[in-house]
Measured scan of single mutants.
Amino acid sequence: RSRTAFTAQQLEALEKTFQKTHYPDVVMRERLAMCTNLPEARVQVWFKNRRAKFRK
């Protein structure tokens, strides 16, 4: 699988949600996936990586 390049709009939506909660539930992730045209699995991995970045 190749690396996913996120658009500015996708990142904005993801970051906005991350500010609200670092652990979105499956419903919220699926809604984000639909809004951003990304698979739910990519949204889940983005949050996992973003939490790791946040802890540093």
Rank of each mutant, 00 (worst) to 15 (best):
Val27Ala: 14
Phe54Lys: 09
Thr36Ser: 04
Lys16Ala: 13
Thr36Arg: 02
Arg51Pro: 09
Pro24His: 05
Arg31Leu: 08
Ala13Asp: 09
Tyr23Glu: 04
Arg31Gln: 14
Phe54Asn: 06
Thr36Pro: 02
Lys48Asn: 05
Ala8Ile: 06
Asn37Thr: 04
Thr21Gly: 03
Leu14Ile: 03
Val26Lys: 13
Val26Asp: 08
Lys53Arg: 10
Leu11Ile: 13
Arg3Gly: 15
Phe18Gly: 01
Glu12Ser: 10
Leu11Gly: 02
Met34Ser: 12
Glu30Asn: 05
Gln9Val: 09
Lys16Cys: 11
Leu32Ala: 01
Asn49Leu: 11
Glu40Phe: 08
Tyr23Ala: 03
Ala33Ile: 00
Leu11Val: 10
Leu14Ala: 01
His22Arg: 08
Gln10Asp: 06
Thr4Gly: 07
Ala41Val: 07
Leu14Gly: 02
Val27Lys: 05
Arg31His: 12
Thr4Lys: 13
Gln10Ala: 04
Ala41Gln: 11
Val27Leu: 12
Lys16Trp: 08
Arg3Tyr: 14
Thr21Phe: 15
Arg29Ser: 06
Met34Phe: 10
Thr4Asn: 13
Ala33Thr: 07
Glu12Phe: 04
Ala8Lys: 07
Thr17Ala: 14
Thr17Ser: 12
Thr4Leu: 12
Ala8Pro: 09
Glu30Gly: 08
Arg1Trp: 10
His22Gln: 10
Arg1Thr: 14
Lys16Phe: 09
Phe47Gly: 00
Asp25Cys: 05
Ala5Tyr: 09
Arg51Tyr: 00
Gln10Gly: 02
Thr7Asp: 04
Lys48Ala: 12
Lys20Tyr: 08
Ala13Asn: 00
Val45Cys: 11
Arg31Asn: 11
Arg51Ala: 01
Ala41Asp: 11
Gln9Glu: 11
Thr4Met: 10
Ala5Arg: 11
Gln10Cys: 01
Met34Lys: 14
Gln9Arg: 03
Phe6Ser: 06
Phe47Leu: 08
Tyr23Leu: 04
Ser2Leu: 11
Gln19Leu: 11
Asn49His: 11
Gln19Ala: 12
Thr7Cys: 03
Gln44Cys: 14
Thr17Trp: 02
His22Pro: 11
Arg31Ala: 10
Ala41Thr: 11
Arg50Ile: 06
Arg42Lys: 14
Phe54Leu: 13
Phe54Arg: 03
Ser2Gly: 12
Phe18Pro: 05
Pro39Thr: 15
Phe18Glu: 05
Gln10Asn: 03
Pro24Lys: 08
Val45Trp: 12
Ala33Cys: 08
Leu32Ile: 08
Glu15Gln: 02
Glu15Lys: 08
Lys16Tyr: 15
Trp46Arg: 08
Gln44Asp: 10
Glu15Asn: 03
Phe18Thr: 03
Pro39Leu: 03
Thr7His: 00
Met28Thr: 12
Arg50Trp: 05
Lys20Glu: 12
Phe54Trp: 12
Arg31Phe: 04
Thr21Asp: 03
Asn49Arg: 09
Met34Asp: 12
Arg3Lys: 15
Ala13Lys: 09
Glu30Val: 05
Leu14Met: 02
Gln9Ser: 10
Glu30Cys: 08
Gln9Leu: 06
Lys53Trp: 07
Arg42Val: 14
Lys16Ile: 07
Glu15Asp: 03
Gln10Phe: 00
Arg50Pro: 02
Lys20Met: 13
Arg50Thr: 05
Thr36Ala: 05
Val26Gly: 10
Gln9Tyr: 02
Thr36Met: 06
Phe6His: 05
His22Met: 15
Arg42Pro: 01
Thr4Trp: 09
Lys53Ser: 12
Ala13Tyr: 07
Thr17Pro: 07
Thr21Gln: 07
Glu40Pro: 11
Asn37Lys: 11
Lys53Met: 11
Thr7Arg: 08
Arg1Gln: 15
Gln9Ile: 06
Asp25Ala: 00
Leu32Tyr: 02
Arg51Cys: 02
Glu40Thr: 10
Lys20Trp: 10
Asn37Arg: 08
Thr17Met: 14
Thr36Asp: 04
Cys35Lys: 12
Phe6Asn: 02
Glu40Gly: 04
Leu38Val: 08
Lys16Thr: 12
Thr21Ser: 06
Leu32Met: 04
Lys20Cys: 08
Lys53Cys: 08
Lys53His: 10
Thr17Val: 15
Ser2Ile: 13
Pro24Ala: 00
Ala52Ser: 08
Leu32Phe: 00
Phe47Arg: 00
Arg29Glu: 07
Leu32Val: 07
Ser2Lys: 04
Ala33Leu: 02
Leu11Trp: 05
Phe47Gln: 00
Arg50Glu: 13
Val43Trp: 04
Ala8Leu: 09
Lys48Pro: 04
Thr21Ala: 06
Thr4Ser: 10
Arg51Asp: 00
Ala8Asn: 09
Val43Thr: 00
Arg1Ile: 14
Asn37Met: 06
Ala33Lys: 05
Val27Glu: 12
Leu38Tyr: 03
Arg42Glu: 15
Trp46Thr: 00
Thr17Leu: 15
Asn37Leu: 04
Lys48Gly: 07
Leu11Met: 09
Phe18Ile: 02
Val27Trp: 05
Ala5Glu: 15
Phe6Arg: 08
Arg1Asp: 15
Phe47Asn: 06
Lys53Gly: 11
Arg29Ala: 07
Leu32Trp: 03
Val27Phe: 08
Phe54Val: 04
Pro39Ile: 01
Lys20Arg: 13
Cys35Pro: 03
Thr17Phe: 10
Val26His: 12
Glu12Asn: 07
Gln44His: 13
Gln10Pro: 04
Val26Ser: 15
Arg50Val: 05
Cys35Ser: 14
Ala33Trp: 04
Ser2Gln: 11
Arg29Trp: 02
Phe54Gly: 09
Ala41Ile: 06
Lys16Gln: 12
Leu11Lys: 10
Thr17Arg: 01
Arg42Cys: 15
Ala8Met: 09
Gln44Val: 07
Glu40Lys: 12
Gln44Pro: 05
Pro39His: 00
Glu12Arg: 01
Leu11Asp: 10
Val45Thr: 15
Phe18Met: 03
Ala13Gln: 10
Tyr23Cys: 04
Asp25Met: 00
Val27Gln: 14
Met28Lys: 01
Thr7Met: 06
Val26Arg: 10
Cys35Arg: 14
Arg1Ser: 14
Arg29Pro: 06
Arg29Gln: 09
Trp46Ser: 07
Ser2His: 12
Val43Pro: 02
His22Tyr: 05
Ala41Pro: 12
Arg31Lys: 13
Ala33Tyr: 02
Phe6Tyr: 12
Ala52Gly: 01
Gln10Leu: 03
Thr36Phe: 14
Phe47Asp: 03
Lys48Thr: 08
Ala41Met: 08
Lys48Arg: 13
Val26Cys: 14
Val26Leu: 13
Asn49Val: 06
Cys35Leu: 14
Pro39Tyr: 05
Ala8Val: 11
Val45Ala: 12
Lys53Asn: 10
Met34Asn: 07
Gln19Cys: 05
Thr36Lys: 00
Lys53Thr: 12
Phe47Ile: 02
Ala13His: 10
Pro39Trp: 02
Lys20Leu: 13
Ala52Glu: 15
Glu12Asp: 13
Arg51Phe: 03
His22Ile: 06
Arg3Trp: 11
Leu38Phe: 01
Leu14Gln: 06
Asp25Pro: 01
Met28Gln: 13
Ala41Asn: 11
Cys35Phe: 09
Asp25Val: 02
Phe54Gln: 09
Arg42Leu: 14
Phe6Pro: 10
Leu38Glu: 02
Val43Phe: 03
Arg42Asp: 14
Arg29Gly: 02
Gln44Asn: 08
Arg50Asn: 08
Phe47Thr: 02
Glu12Pro: 00
Arg3Met: 14
Arg1Leu: 01
Val43Ser: 04
Lys20Phe: 12
Ala13Phe: 14
Lys48Val: 13
Val27Pro: 10
His22Cys: 04
Val43Cys: 00
Pro24Phe: 03
His22Leu: 06
Leu38Asp: 00
Arg3Asn: 15
Met34Val: 14
Ala8Gln: 12
Arg50Cys: 01
Phe6Met: 12
Arg51Ile: 05
